[in-house]
Amino acid sequence: MMIQIAEARISYGDSPAILKDVNLTVNKNDWITILGVSGTGKTSLLNIIGGLLRPTAGEVEVEGRNLQALTREEMQEYRRNKIGFVYQDFKLFDQYTVLENVMLPQLPYDSHKKLEKQAIQLLEQVGLSHRLSHLPAELSGGEKQRVAIARALIGCPEILLCDEPTGNLDNESTKTVMRILQELHKGGLTILLITHDNSLASYGNRIVTTGDGTIVELDGE
């Protein structure tokens, strides 16, 4: 058991809870596709796993560690080393090169040389070894997302949280990104992926839908 969410509740201020009594167990090397209409708490669900949001009630455990019990420092370390984030809008730093963007998460914490070697390997893995010194502005949307994936992997995370990674991409780029994610999954990575595209659900082994404040797991078929 990799992640255990028990009776989690998420609400913002006085508004009705966006998620209530959520229970979810994620096993190692699971690929869970999260489907649901806007505003049903998909991103909130990823954020409580990623430690960006604390549930109003309930508990979230990752590899047996209660996330609520972590200090700020421990939480930052957890995010840096256990989790990789991939967003729809890439969240790349326009002023840095592709290589620097990939190195960035670990830059203050590891040797420059080692990181550079690691980042080059990751960029080779996502097929961007020829774009090392390019700036994000010089890349296509698909390429940007591949840089974002490489950046998410620099800390060698065990869990990859993807919030609509293909939302801004064309079909071709979507396929490329999904193929990369597939390979990473084969390599043992646990993936939680939010999408509006039902066709992408076939890449995962489990499907979860959100709505009415709850989550429901669908059968594999």
């Binding site: 700020r72 957890y78 995010r79 984030f85 969240k91 730093f93 960035l104 998460p105 950046r151």
Partner: peptide, 19 residues
């Protein structure tokens, strides 16, 4: 937004502050 991104990729408070 940049500060938010640095947080998301796991930078420590003091490292963001120092930079």
């Amino acid at each position: 937004q940049e500060l938010e991104s640095l947080k998301q990729i796991g930078w420590k408070f003091k490292d963001i502050q120092r930079t």
